[in-house]
Amino acid sequence: MTANVVSWILLLAIAAYACGGGVDYGAGFWDLLAGGADRGKRPRWLIDHAMAPVWEVNNVWLIFVLVLMWTGFPVFFQTVFTALWLPLALAVVGMVLRGAGFALRKPTRRLAERRIYGAVFAVSSLLTPFFLGVVIGSVASGRVAPGTTASADVWANTTSITAGLLTVAATAFLGAVFLTVDARRFGAHDLVGYFRLRAWISSAALLVIGVIGLTVTDPHASYVHHGLTHGVGLVLVIVAVVALAVTAWLVAGTAAGWARYSSVAVVALLVAAWGFAQRPYLVPTSLTVQQGAGASATLQWMLIVAAVALVLIGPALVVLYRLDTHGVLEPLTDEDVAK
């Protein structure tokens, strides 16, 4: 019972990271494709401006995912990190480069250096979600089991790669939608159309890769494939597709602000569909939630800690997002620290 609750919280944390972190990675993705220094000047300005106040908070979700994994489901954590060593190692290297590139680009002035930091930030914004997606795809594909050692065929297969591409498409989609809304919010009207077009393109890409992913399955992935094409999983997938269409429609209209919610719903629903599809397994079809669960005393305490923490963090998070969306949060300018 407790184990089930904790496993849903784990899925929720993954969904939160996919949405919060996804917006960030997506912003980096569009930074990468923004073109040369002149052409990309305006979009990059918006990207920098829009993501700065909240990006650190978004990335904390990942820490939660890891802690929930090793404390709640130690064997699951051990299994995933042993079998999928390489993609996880590459993802973490990408994360270091990305975080450092973004943080260091801001206070740097010289054009050449900013180019380097910017490129590092942008390229790793593409690679990190790809490898994280590959990890999820590999777990879903059923090629991982407790005791599996690291090897390329665990993750270099159609399902895993498709999941990686799907993740990149999802981040690009989230990034483009949020930037469209931000362009309006910051009064950069020339950029509204720019990012709206990209939101449409990435919606289409997401749809296409998703459809390919569902049709081209390999036999290993049959359990999750069945879950995604039947019952609750299928319903969630369909709702996600509807939300995708709604988002594409919303960004075109005047009420574009709502597109943020529907785009987050798309990604959260996809994560939920994956979770429902592989019930009751943590690792299909070798480790169930019950088999992988840690000591029940610890799981209960995790829920207590989480409840207490939510009381503390909830209000703080509300304040942060309210201040941010009301434009109260602004970085210090050079002038402010000069006198």
């Binding site: 908070v57 802690v67 090793w70 404390t71 051990q78 840690g294 610890t298 800690v305 989480a306």
Partner: peptide, 16 residues
Amino acid sequence: GDVFGLGFGVEAWAFF
């Protein structure tokens, strides 16, 4: 992990 991991849970929330 399940014996001593709770401390990391506290840390993650605090860090958040």
